[in-house]
Design a protein around this nucleic acid. Structure first.
Lengths: 104, 104
DNA sequence: CAAGTATATCACAAGAACCCTATATCATGC
DNA sequence: GCATGATATAGGGTTCTTGTGATATACTTG
Protein backbone atom coordinates (compact mmCIF):
# COMPACT_ATOMS: atom_id res chain seq x y z
CA UNK A 1 0.00 0.00 0.00
CA UNK A 2 2.19 2.80 -1.30
CA UNK A 3 0.31 5.88 -0.15
CA UNK A 4 -1.82 4.80 2.74
CA UNK A 5 -0.51 7.62 4.89
CA UNK A 6 -1.21 10.63 2.68
CA UNK A 7 -3.17 13.12 4.69
CA UNK A 8 -4.69 16.00 2.86
CA UNK A 9 -5.82 19.33 4.17
CA UNK A 10 -9.54 19.28 4.92
CA UNK A 11 -11.73 20.61 2.17
CA UNK A 12 -13.44 22.78 4.75
CA UNK A 13 -10.13 24.46 5.49
CA UNK A 14 -9.42 24.92 1.80
CA UNK A 15 -12.85 26.40 1.28
CA UNK A 16 -12.16 28.80 4.08
CA UNK A 17 -8.73 29.99 3.00
CA UNK A 18 -9.24 29.99 -0.76
CA UNK A 19 -11.29 33.20 -0.86
CA UNK A 20 -8.83 34.93 1.45
CA UNK A 21 -5.88 34.12 -0.79
CA UNK A 22 -7.93 34.80 -3.87
CA UNK A 23 -8.90 38.20 -2.57
CA UNK A 24 -5.33 39.07 -1.75
CA UNK A 25 -4.20 37.99 -5.20
CA UNK A 26 -5.05 41.16 -7.06
CA UNK A 27 -2.38 43.56 -8.29
CA UNK A 28 -3.58 46.60 -6.40
CA UNK A 29 -4.36 44.68 -3.26
CA UNK A 30 -0.93 43.05 -3.36
CA UNK A 31 0.53 46.50 -3.75
CA UNK A 32 -1.35 47.65 -0.66
CA UNK A 33 -0.13 44.65 1.32
CA UNK A 34 3.41 45.15 0.08
CA UNK A 35 3.28 48.78 1.10
CA UNK A 36 2.07 47.87 4.57
CA UNK A 37 4.73 45.19 4.73
CA UNK A 38 7.51 47.60 3.87
CA UNK A 39 6.15 50.33 6.11
CA UNK A 40 5.77 47.92 8.99
CA UNK A 41 3.26 50.28 10.58
CA UNK A 42 -0.37 51.30 10.14
CA UNK A 43 -0.84 53.67 7.21
CA UNK A 44 -3.67 56.01 6.39
CA UNK A 45 -5.68 55.99 3.21
CA UNK A 46 -4.00 59.03 1.72
CA UNK A 47 -0.58 57.42 2.01
CA UNK A 48 -1.88 54.17 0.60
CA UNK A 49 -3.50 55.96 -2.31
CA UNK A 50 -0.18 57.70 -3.01
CA UNK A 51 1.68 54.39 -2.91
CA UNK A 52 -0.83 52.81 -5.25
CA UNK A 53 -1.05 55.61 -7.76
CA UNK A 54 -4.72 54.87 -8.21
CA UNK A 55 -8.04 56.62 -7.65
CA UNK A 56 -9.03 57.14 -4.06
CA UNK A 57 -12.43 55.54 -4.54
CA UNK A 58 -10.87 52.49 -6.09
CA UNK A 59 -8.28 52.09 -3.38
CA UNK A 60 -10.95 52.53 -0.76
CA UNK A 61 -12.93 49.71 -2.30
CA UNK A 62 -9.92 47.45 -2.27
CA UNK A 63 -9.27 48.28 1.36
CA UNK A 64 -12.83 47.32 2.09
CA UNK A 65 -12.41 43.98 0.38
CA UNK A 66 -9.23 43.24 2.34
CA UNK A 67 -10.96 44.28 5.54
CA UNK A 68 -14.03 42.17 4.82
CA UNK A 69 -11.74 39.17 4.40
CA UNK A 70 -10.13 39.84 7.75
CA UNK A 71 -6.80 40.53 6.07
CA UNK A 72 -6.72 44.13 7.29
CA UNK A 73 -8.06 46.00 10.25
CA UNK A 74 -8.56 49.74 10.51
CA UNK A 75 -8.83 52.32 13.18
CA UNK A 76 -9.86 55.93 12.84
CA UNK A 77 -7.83 58.74 14.40
CA UNK A 78 -9.39 62.09 13.77
CA UNK A 79 -10.18 62.34 10.13
CA UNK A 80 -7.63 59.71 9.18
CA UNK A 81 -8.22 55.99 8.98
CA UNK A 82 -5.21 53.79 9.53
CA UNK A 83 -5.00 50.31 8.09
CA UNK A 84 -2.79 47.47 9.15
CA UNK A 85 -2.50 43.78 8.48
CA UNK A 86 -4.54 41.65 10.87
CA UNK A 87 -2.73 38.38 10.37
CA UNK A 88 0.90 38.54 9.46
CA UNK A 89 0.65 35.17 7.73
CA UNK A 90 -0.36 37.07 4.62
CA UNK A 91 3.13 38.53 4.54
CA UNK A 92 4.39 35.07 3.58
CA UNK A 93 2.67 35.66 0.29
CA UNK A 94 4.42 38.98 -0.22
CA UNK A 95 7.78 37.57 0.83
CA UNK A 96 7.26 34.69 -1.53
CA UNK A 97 6.63 37.06 -4.42
CA UNK A 98 9.69 39.07 -3.48
CA UNK A 99 11.86 35.99 -3.45
CA UNK A 100 10.47 34.74 -6.75
CA UNK A 101 11.08 38.10 -8.32
CA UNK A 102 14.82 37.43 -8.21
CA UNK A 103 14.60 34.09 -9.94
CA UNK A 104 12.19 35.29 -12.61
CA UNK B 1 12.11 62.06 5.23
CA UNK B 2 10.82 59.03 7.10
CA UNK B 3 10.17 56.60 4.28
CA UNK B 4 12.43 57.65 1.48
CA UNK B 5 13.77 54.12 1.13
CA UNK B 6 10.57 52.12 0.78
CA UNK B 7 10.82 50.04 -2.33
CA UNK B 8 7.74 48.31 -3.56
CA UNK B 9 7.43 45.35 -5.83
CA UNK B 10 6.89 46.49 -9.41
CA UNK B 11 3.29 46.62 -10.51
CA UNK B 12 4.29 44.64 -13.59
CA UNK B 13 5.45 41.81 -11.34
CA UNK B 14 2.27 41.97 -9.29
CA UNK B 15 0.18 41.90 -12.43
CA UNK B 16 2.07 38.83 -13.53
CA UNK B 17 1.84 36.84 -10.32
CA UNK B 18 -1.66 37.85 -9.23
CA UNK B 19 -3.50 35.63 -11.72
CA UNK B 20 -1.23 32.70 -10.90
CA UNK B 21 -1.96 32.94 -7.19
CA UNK B 22 -5.59 33.69 -7.86
CA UNK B 23 -5.92 30.62 -10.00
CA UNK B 24 -4.30 28.44 -7.38
CA UNK B 25 -6.60 29.83 -4.70
CA UNK B 26 -9.57 27.63 -5.39
CA UNK B 27 -10.60 24.81 -3.07
CA UNK B 28 -10.35 22.01 -5.59
CA UNK B 29 -7.17 23.34 -7.14
CA UNK B 30 -5.59 23.68 -3.73
CA UNK B 31 -6.61 20.12 -3.05
CA UNK B 32 -4.88 19.02 -6.24
CA UNK B 33 -1.73 20.91 -5.30
CA UNK B 34 -1.84 19.55 -1.78
CA UNK B 35 -2.19 16.04 -3.13
CA UNK B 36 0.79 16.52 -5.43
CA UNK B 37 2.69 18.03 -2.54
CA UNK B 38 2.03 15.09 -0.27
CA UNK B 39 2.66 12.55 -3.00
CA UNK B 40 5.90 14.23 -3.99
CA UNK B 41 5.68 12.56 -7.39
CA UNK B 42 3.77 12.94 -10.63
CA UNK B 43 0.23 11.58 -10.38
CA UNK B 44 -2.18 10.56 -13.06
CA UNK B 45 -5.66 11.94 -13.51
CA UNK B 46 -7.43 8.94 -12.09
CA UNK B 47 -5.50 9.22 -8.84
CA UNK B 48 -6.11 12.95 -8.67
CA UNK B 49 -9.81 12.47 -9.28
CA UNK B 50 -9.93 9.94 -6.46
CA UNK B 51 -8.12 12.32 -4.11
CA UNK B 52 -10.50 15.12 -5.01
CA UNK B 53 -13.72 13.19 -4.76
CA UNK B 54 -15.07 15.20 -7.67
CA UNK B 55 -16.24 14.56 -11.20
CA UNK B 56 -13.57 13.60 -13.68
CA UNK B 57 -14.57 16.31 -16.13
CA UNK B 58 -14.44 18.95 -13.46
CA UNK B 59 -11.04 17.86 -12.20
CA UNK B 60 -9.76 17.76 -15.74
CA UNK B 61 -10.87 21.35 -16.20
CA UNK B 62 -9.07 22.41 -13.07
CA UNK B 63 -5.92 20.63 -14.20
CA UNK B 64 -6.12 22.51 -17.45
CA UNK B 65 -6.38 25.82 -15.63
CA UNK B 66 -3.38 25.01 -13.47
CA UNK B 67 -1.45 23.94 -16.52
CA UNK B 68 -2.39 27.05 -18.47
CA UNK B 69 -1.03 29.13 -15.61
CA UNK B 70 2.23 27.23 -15.74
CA UNK B 71 1.63 25.86 -12.26
CA UNK B 72 1.53 22.27 -13.47
CA UNK B 73 3.09 20.35 -16.31
CA UNK B 74 1.93 17.04 -17.68
CA UNK B 75 3.31 14.17 -19.62
CA UNK B 76 1.50 11.29 -21.19
CA UNK B 77 2.58 7.68 -20.70
CA UNK B 78 0.42 5.29 -22.61
CA UNK B 79 -3.15 6.13 -21.82
CA UNK B 80 -2.26 7.88 -18.58
CA UNK B 81 -1.40 11.53 -18.17
CA UNK B 82 0.81 12.41 -15.24
CA UNK B 83 0.75 15.86 -13.69
CA UNK B 84 3.36 17.50 -11.53
CA UNK B 85 4.09 20.92 -10.17
CA UNK B 86 6.24 23.02 -12.49
CA UNK B 87 7.50 25.52 -9.94
CA UNK B 88 7.86 24.34 -6.39
CA UNK B 89 7.36 27.89 -5.14
CA UNK B 90 3.65 27.18 -5.18
CA UNK B 91 4.23 24.69 -2.38
CA UNK B 92 4.97 27.64 -0.10
CA UNK B 93 1.30 28.43 -0.39
CA UNK B 94 0.31 24.92 0.63
CA UNK B 95 2.81 24.84 3.47
CA UNK B 96 1.52 28.17 4.64
CA UNK B 97 -2.03 26.86 4.74
CA UNK B 98 -0.87 23.79 6.60
CA UNK B 99 0.91 25.86 9.20
CA UNK B 100 -2.06 28.20 9.60
CA UNK B 101 -4.38 25.28 10.03
CA UNK B 102 -2.86 24.61 13.46
CA UNK B 103 -3.36 28.15 14.71
CA UNK B 104 -6.97 28.29 13.47
C1' DC C 1 -22.49 76.57 10.12
C1' DA C 2 -19.41 76.84 5.95
C1' DA C 3 -15.59 75.17 3.59
C1' DG C 4 -12.13 71.91 2.96
C1' DT C 5 -9.88 67.59 3.42
C1' DA C 6 -10.30 62.56 4.28
C1' DT C 7 -12.71 58.48 3.45
C1' DA C 8 -16.60 55.45 2.05
C1' DT C 9 -20.41 53.96 -0.74
C1' DC C 10 -23.51 53.40 -4.87
C1' DA C 11 -24.75 51.85 -9.26
C1' DC C 12 -23.60 49.84 -13.25
C1' DA C 13 -21.81 47.51 -17.60
C1' DA C 14 -18.37 44.50 -19.15
C1' DG C 15 -16.12 40.61 -18.46
C1' DA C 16 -14.56 36.45 -16.03
C1' DA C 17 -15.14 32.45 -13.04
C1' DC C 18 -17.88 28.55 -11.52
C1' DC C 19 -19.73 24.11 -12.09
C1' DC C 20 -22.64 21.00 -14.49
C1' DT C 21 -23.96 17.85 -18.41
C1' DA C 22 -22.97 15.93 -22.52
C1' DT C 23 -19.79 14.50 -25.69
C1' DA C 24 -15.35 14.01 -27.86
C1' DT C 25 -10.62 12.21 -28.20
C1' DC C 26 -6.93 9.05 -27.26
C1' DA C 27 -4.71 4.58 -26.24
C1' DT C 28 -4.90 -0.41 -25.45
C1' DG C 29 -6.05 -5.19 -26.08
C1' DC C 30 -8.78 -8.48 -28.17
C1' DG D 1 -12.13 -2.43 -36.08
C1' DC D 2 -14.58 -2.54 -31.50
C1' DA D 3 -15.06 -2.26 -26.77
C1' DT D 4 -13.18 -0.27 -22.84
C1' DG D 5 -10.80 2.66 -19.81
C1' DA D 6 -8.42 7.24 -19.51
C1' DT D 7 -8.59 11.98 -20.39
C1' DA D 8 -10.12 16.35 -22.61
C1' DT D 9 -13.31 19.69 -24.48
C1' DA D 10 -17.74 22.07 -25.54
C1' DG D 11 -21.83 24.52 -24.26
C1' DG D 12 -24.31 27.31 -21.12
C1' DG D 13 -26.80 29.29 -17.05
C1' DT D 14 -25.63 31.55 -13.02
C1' DT D 15 -23.03 34.15 -10.08
C1' DC D 16 -18.81 36.90 -8.87
C1' DT D 17 -15.35 40.44 -10.10
C1' DT D 18 -13.65 44.56 -12.11
C1' DG D 19 -12.99 49.39 -12.65
C1' DT D 20 -15.43 53.86 -13.11
C1' DG D 21 -17.92 58.10 -12.21
C1' DA D 22 -20.84 60.21 -9.21
C1' DT D 23 -22.05 61.00 -4.68
C1' DA D 24 -22.23 60.48 0.22
C1' DT D 25 -20.41 60.69 4.87
C1' DA D 26 -17.06 62.05 8.51
C1' DC D 27 -14.00 65.10 10.73
C1' DT D 28 -11.52 69.62 11.43
C1' DT D 29 -10.91 74.38 11.43
C1' DG D 30 -12.30 78.99 11.27
Amino acid sequence: MPEADIELIDMSVLEQVAPIIRNAAHPLRLRILDFLRQSDAPRNVTDIVAACEAEQAFVSQQLRILKDQGILVSKRTGSFVYYQVANRAIFHLIDCIRSQQRCG
